[in-house]
């Protein structure tokens, strides 16, 4: 329906006025000529660094205020959360954590475990299937590529609320309802166009000299993909893994619809069962368990983000 959105000939964009004046040399040669950057030892950078830290901390506190409020409220007795809205709790009351953990039909770790299963399946699925599809879209020439690419993007333009019912009927006919299959299998089949597109953009950002050279050495696409593209795209893979983890961990709607037995419930559904618009809600336990469910994703992020650092700059390109 749209005009071909992907241009196989993207390099045409760099027009003549940008073309080099000097004869071209390999980047490595250029780099070799670069001496160590000069280090000025004066008070000025240090003061600037301190100022930067101060600003970041200040800004961070504002950003985190709602979160800190939730953390603080999780230590307040359920009854007074709304009456005593100060940021510092007057006493450290851990009952919300104990109550919350055992308030539902299963102890909370049951839901954590269910979520972990869904999440791990999804992460693996997305990493494998999306990177494969992305390689094809980024580096292979095949007929109808722009059209397939457009179709891929279109598939994420419909709101979930209108596709969920047909999806339910489909999975129901397959007898997949109340299993983790409707949540994991689609990821194995690269239905998350977001990540395909993400990796396409990263792959296209990698110097083409590399796979060109590999091809001259007789490498097939399989080896180029596995031994060149993937190792060089660690940041993109880490991003995919982190995001898949977090979004699946937080995804409420499809898990609500596809899982019917409380035995199979995951963390987001369990969290919803603390509150109900029509009767008393257990806000304290909800906050406590929300904090608990944030812990895994926080640590995944904390450890995962160091892989974002290992880009081309550190793996080194010769």
């Amino acid at each position: 329906m749209t005009d071909t959105p992907v241009r196989p000939d993207a390099h045409a964009a760099t027009t003549d006025d940008r073309s080099p004046v000097r004869p071209r040399r390999p980047l490595s040669e250029v780099a070799a000529e670069i001496p160590d950057s000069p280090r000025k030892r004066s008070w000025q950078p240090r003061a600037r660094r301190l100022l930067k830290h101060a600003l970041l901390i200040g800004f961070g506190l504002v950003m985190l205020y709602p979160l800190l409020w939730m953390l603080s409220s999780s230590f307040k007795p359920n009854d007074i959360i709304f009456r005593d809205t100060g940021l510092i709790p007057t006493e450290l009351d851990l009952t919300n954590y104990g109550d919350g953990w055992f308030a539902l039909l299963h102890p909370f770790h049951h839901y954590l475990l269910n979520s972990a299963i869904v999440v791990l399946g999804s992460v693996l699925g997305n990493l494998i299937s999306c990177s494969m599809a992305a390689y094809a879209f980024a580096r292979l020439k095949f007929r109808g590529r722009p059209i397939w690419f457009a179709i891929m993007l279109m598939s994420i333009m419909l709101p979930i609320h209108v596709v969920i019912v047909p999806q339910y009927i489909l999975f129901s006919e397959l007898e997949w309802i109340n299993t983790f299959l409707p949540l994991v299998v689609p990821k194995l089949l690269a239905t998350d166009a977001f990540f395909i597109f993400l990796m396409v953009q990263f792959f296209r950002g990698l110097p083409k000299d590399l796979d060109e050279a590999a091809r001259l050495d007789g490498c097939g696409h399989g080896r180029i993909f596995l031994q060149i593209m993937l190792p060089l795209s660690l940041p993109a893979l880490a991003t995919t893994a982190i995001f898949t983890f977090i979004w699946t961990w937080n995804d409420f709607f499809s898990q609500l619809i596809f899982l019917t037995d409380p035995e199979m419930y995951t963390v987001p559904i369990a969290l919803r069962t603390f509150i109900d618009a029509t009767s008393a809600s257990s806000w304290g336990p909800l906050f406590a368990m929300s904090i608990v469910s944030l812990v895994p994703i926080f640590f995944i992020f904390l450890f995962g983000q160091k892989y974002l650092v290992k880009g081309i700059a550190t793996t080194g390109i010769k």
């Binding site: 019917t260 919803r272 069962t273």
Partner: peptide
């Protein structure tokens, strides 16, 4: 058992009926 909060309940019920 099949339970959820008020809001999610009606979405789920309508979907299961449709299915």
């Amino acid at each position: 058992p099949d339970f959820t909060d008020w809001g999610g309940y009606w979405d789920k019920l309508a979907t299961t009926v449709a299915g």
